[in-house]
Design a protein around this nucleic acid. Structure first.
Lengths: 335, 335
DNA sequence: ATCGATCGTTGAATCGTTTCACATCGGCAC
DNA sequence: GTGCCGATGTGAAACGATTCAACGATCGAT
């Protein structure tokens, strides 16, 4: 009943199964009248192609797998959106997996994708060991890292240049005449944090008289930023920075809120300029619109997908693709 | 080479393909020594089950499809997270589709899911006509609506009671002694907006001396809310509401920002109390933490999946499941 | 020694689609 | 009339896992 196969269609239209298949896949090879007859039969019976059978024959699916660290993070949903758009253009569908930073879940998705014979895997690795991914790649399922690098160079990757991003932020603040910089950072163990910091250090070193203070916070969240912001208000003016670079927007927004809330003492940006990182959606709509460093998130996704396709089709290695971040100046620094 | 089939494993282990399949699916039926031998062969050859072949034989896949209106909206990612967690517990995987509110894209995903013979479809419909969904359901692929209702009752649905939510918000404000309420609403055509408004009206009608003003804005965004907030500042005190209910948190945050920014004139909550809806993550970390009405998002997803499973396995209809929203009082109303 | 029952294993049929070597036919040139 | 061509259409052989009727071996009971 509900299991209408290509054979039923063939019978109904009075042709062979081969012809139905041809109508489906290369209608130009079939006489017009026949095409019409077959199409009519398809509609009448409500035939829906069985993807599993097609795939079995084909040897691989028309999908790619994407594993992200956290679907609830706007950063990743934007990347995923970019991937999906590009994939749709190439006639591929995307199966999305959420590892939540858990290597075991990541592993489960990789197995699933392998069983599904996906055409490739895009991943923001949760598991620092890339061993499994390299094996997958060797076995013929191309892997591209998204926002994660492979030191060994065995895997292709697409990232944003965080060193350049850190430098960009610092130079912006220095260019506005600020000299006492405070970087509100996250755990030093995160590659992203370390790289951004490196960029800042380089920029500060080039300006005589510029000083740098770094505060490492355990979490990259709004409350953490707010707490740090409050501590600034308590400082004597001489020990206070005149500019703050938060390594992500959540921290930056927290700092901003603390400063703006205690309005009697400090003004943004007059007393302290604040800049964040990521340019998330709410940055622009904060109480004082927050300057930030934008990462081309959608483009990251798009490019990763293209690298995957090139690798699959022609065996081309993309290597380590690195994008340039972009400064977005708003009132929290420029006034 | 990379195409290791169950047959290769059988040869390597010196058994028949049937036995390998048994090891894979019912190891208790196979002698221990044989299991060990087959497992060894599997590991050595790096055999990975071909999901397409298994599915072809089985007749259906081990997945369900989920179509949401907007992956970038935290509301939906939370719902999706709930779905995924529940699905994983049932041994199912979730294929996520993003319609972006476009009926054509929605349609494409439905076709894809049908070709994949998914076990069911969860969907926040973009297309008001549920015709296609009903057909899908009739053809044997159970459909459950998530945050959307079917007036005809043909389809199961899981929603949050928006009338109750609107009433909850209004009663909170009235209970704090506020009497001049302003509802900052979205397009009246949205069911959610209309329902919330209905709840507010009912609550206001019960309190003598309480008045209600409604402003319909075209968009449910932060800037729209901010603009409206500014317009309030310009009003003479006598024409000004003493409480604002924004039908979603983005609007509420916008209003809040406008009021707090122009601090000389109006204080929150002393002069105007503000409450939003959805309890999105940033509500708690706003300049003045925003009161809101929380929807059990993850639970919504979990329940929708359970309804789908019950329907598929035992043919049980869940009908129209409706959850109760919950008030979350914060400083923007309670001070 | 024979029978039955139990356990483990076998091998062929099956799922629905694609592909490809081959058949059929009408037309055209010689 | 013969041979050849292109255009259409055919039908069987894959793809890889699952399932199930049937088979052989082993063992205890008679």
């Amino acid at each position: 009943m509900s299991v209408v196969s290509i054979r039923d269609v063939a019978t109904a239209a009075g042709v062979s199964v081969g012809t139905v298949s041809n109508v489906l896949n290369r209608p130009e090879k079939v006489a017009e009248a026949t095409v019409a007859r077959v199409r009519a039969a398809i509609d009448e019976l409500g035939f829906i192609r069985n993807e599993a059978a097609r795939q079995l024959r084909e040897g691989r699916s028309a999908a790619i797998g994407l594993v992200v660290l956290d679907v609830r993070n706007p950063y990743f949903t934007d990347v995923a959106h970019g991937v999906e758009t590009a994939a749709a253009a190439a006639g591929l569908s995307v199966t999305l997996g959420n590892s939540d930073g858990d290597p075991a879940r990541e592993q489960r998705y990789l197995e699933l994708f392998e069983q599904q014979r996906v055409q490739g895997v895009l991943i923001s690795p949760a598991d620092a060991s890339l061993e499994r991914l390299r094996r997958l790649d060797e076995r013929g399922i191309p892997v591209v890292l998204v926002d994660g690098a492979d030191p060994s160079g065995a895997l292709d990757s697409v990232t944003v240049d965080d060193v350049a991003g850190g430098r960009l932020a610092a130079e912006h603040l220095l260019g506005l005449g600020r000299r006492r910089l405070l970087v509100v950072a996250g755990p030093a163990s995160l590659r992203q944090v370390a790289d951004r910091l490196e960029g800042v250090r380089a920029a500060v070193a080039e300006i005589p008289g510029a000083s740098l203070e770094v505060q490492h916070l355990p979490q990259l969240t709004v409350p953490a930023g707010r707490e740090l912001g409050r501590s600034l208000i308590g400082r004597p003016a001489s020990a206070r920075p005149d500019a703050v670079f938060a390594v992500n927007d959540l921290l930056g927004l927290g700092v901003l809120q603390a400063l703006v809330l205690e309005r009697e003492t400090l003004r943004v940006p007059e007393d302290i300029a604040v800049i964040g990182y990521d340019d998330i959606e709410w940055a622009a709509s904060a109480v004082v619109p927050l300057s930030s460093v934008r990462q081309p998130r959608e483009q990251l996704g798009r490019t990763a997908l293209e690298a995957l396709l090139a690798r699959g089709a022609e065996g081309l290695r993309a290597g380590a693709v690195r994008f340039a971040p972009e400064l977005v100046a708003r009132r929290s620094t420029t006034g």
